[in-house]
């Protein structure tokens, strides 16, 4: 496994996490997410002996996470003509601090986990943990439907990073399931975003408060 290159890419993906947490502009958030998707898609080709299955995963990831889904989100953003400023529940600076703290904790925690020798020097596990955490912060801390969808996708990116540990040993269909879920999930999210718009004339999920005890 080409550790140096792989770790460089994971480091980049982790940097994009912080960018996603810190940005106040929706287009930049989508761009960060899309760049992360492309980087994630390149990773499997750097791992040992990429066969056709691995290449398929790489192509599908770049196409799905890097191009198709961000494209759909941009389209949703244009059609509903929403304000491009994000309104955070958790402020941008606290978000970055949380994300950075989480990244450091992930790096500190990983040596305590039992890892196979070929994974011990890789950033895959801390990268996955930090990205999952970033996704969760965005899911909880942002109010607009599109930015929550971005948070969900970054969460999925983290899970994908963890899945790379198993790409050789695990059958392809598990990975195909991930991609399928992703595409379909956002497709449906897109419809709902559209419907929420029509029903509320806003994409602010804070207004979804009719149902409570």
């Amino acid at each position: 496994m080409n550790h140096a290159h792989l770790n460089l890419l994971i480091g980049l993906a982790m940097g994009l996490n912080l960018l996603a947490l810190g940005t106040s502009r929706l287009p930049l958030l989508i761009r960060a997410m899309s760049a992360q998707g492309v980087i994630l898609g390149v990773m499997p080709t750097l791992m040992e002996r990429p066969d056709w299955r691995v290449l398929l995963v790489a192509a599908a990831t770049i196409g799905g996470k890097g191009l198709f889904i961000p494209g759909m989100l941009r389209r949703a953003m244009r059609t509903v003509q929403i304000d491009r400023e994000l309104e955070p529940l958790i402020g941008f600076v606290p978000s970055i601090l949380l994300g950075a703290g989480g990244t450091i904790a992930a790096l500190a925690l990983t040596p305590m986990l039992p890892l196979l020798p070929e994974h011990a020097n890789s950033l895959l596990v801390p990268g996955a943990l930090a990205t999952v955490l970033t996704g969760l912060i965005l899911l909880i801390g942002r109010t607009k439907a599109i930015s929550q969808a971005c948070g969900y996708l970054i969460l999925e990116n983290g899970i994908y990073l963890f899945g790379l540990l198993l790409i050789q040993a695990m059958p392809l269909m598990v990975e195909a399931g991930v991609l399928l879920d992703l595409t379909v999930g956002v497709f449906i999210l897109g419809i709902i975003v559209d419907r929420i718009q029509r029903a509320f004339d806003s994409l602010d999920t804070r207004k979804l408060t009719a149902l409570h005890e």
């Binding site: 999952v132 983290g158 899970i159 198993l166 419907r195 029903a199």
Partner: peptide, 26 residues
């Protein structure tokens, strides 16, 4: 609108749950 609100919450909470169960499976 109430049905859409319910669906949105279902997707967000259920989607996060299902993502965590994938991480657990991995």
């Amino acid at each position: 609108p109430r049905a859409f609100e319910a669906t949105w919450k279902y997707l967000l909470v259920g989607g996060t749950g299902i993502a965590l169960s994938l991480l657990g499976s991995l």
